[in-house]
Simulated assay, not measured.
Amino acid sequence: KVFIVPPPDNTKLYKAKISPDGKHIAALTSEGVYVFNLDNGEIIKRIDLSGYRIENYYYWFDIYYSENSQNLAIYSLYDQTTKVYSAKNYEFIKKFNGKLFFSPSGDILNFDGRKVIIYDSHLRVKRKIKFPSYPDHVSFSKDGNMIAFGYSSALNEKTHYIKIEIYSAELKKVVTISDKVNQELLHKLFWSSDGKTIYAVYGIVTFKNYSFNKILKIDTSNKKIISTININNFGEVTDLVYLKDNKFAAVTNIPSILIFDKDKTILLKLNQRN
């Protein structure tokens, strides 16, 4: 199927996410967020984002569904807040300071400054703790028993690094793993389906260019970095998504979509020329 956002004709499509239950597609555009019914292509809802300057800064926004498909979250780096909407009728529920991360069970982890608040799926507070620093990305293991917090050094620091801290679901630290890099920033963390591996995606980020073309592969059993996967031969990678069974989908600036495995073998390639 092809889903097209409505006029005006100069509307730009920036990001799109499919709900985990496969029912809806939420599309971030320069005119707000449009939600499509995946079966018939009809627009269910338009969420207005007026007041934010989205043009040319779509990486300042993020949209994502909860693991249980009950909620849609829209994060804005402008004011560092997250708005949560019900995925049933896409009505607004609550605004949070900081970014939210959803666990497989439906719990919500919220960073508000250096304070971590964990809510249940009904937005009731379960626990609060102080945290050493604000991470670049957070990822729950597939069973929800472990949490990976990812950090990268600021670009103006002399020594550059990627650091992964693994915590239990009760927020007790298990291990810290780090590696030196060359002025790259962490983009995302992914757990493998069996929980034995963490993939840390990173790359160059500036106000004009970004390319997430390297992956650290981390063994969670031995608590060490196994290898670095370099995918810069695919062009400038604007986003990278872990699928399953050690497979990734890469979006490039050509534009194209590539699906490849951990050995960088291309399994599928799609671009506008196809």
Rank of each mutant, 00 (worst) to 15 (best):
D79G: 02
Q80G: 00
T81Q: 13
T81Y: 05
T82V: 01
T82G: 02
Y85R: 06
Y85W: 10
A87K: 09
A87C: 10
A87W: 08
K88S: 14
Y90F: 15
K95E: 15
G98N: 07
L100C: 10
F101A: 07
P104G: 11
P104C: 11
S105I: 01
S105K: 15
G106E: 11
D107I: 00
D107F: 04
D107Y: 07
I108A: 04
I108C: 04
L109G: 02
L109Y: 08
F111K: 01
D112K: 11
D112C: 05
R114A: 05
R114Q: 13
K115L: 07
V116I: 15
I117R: 13
I118E: 14
Y119H: 09
H122E: 15
H122A: 14
L123R: 12
L123T: 02
L123S: 11
R124K: 15
V125W: 05
K128N: 12
I129Q: 12
K130L: 12
S133I: 07
Y134T: 11
H137L: 02
V138L: 05
V138S: 02
S139Y: 06
S139V: 08
S141Q: 06
D143A: 06
M146Y: 15
G150H: 06
A154H: 10
N156M: 07
E157I: 00
H160W: 11
H160Y: 06
H160L: 06
Y161E: 10
E165Y: 02
E165R: 09
Y167Q: 03
S168N: 09
A169F: 08
E170L: 03
E170Q: 04
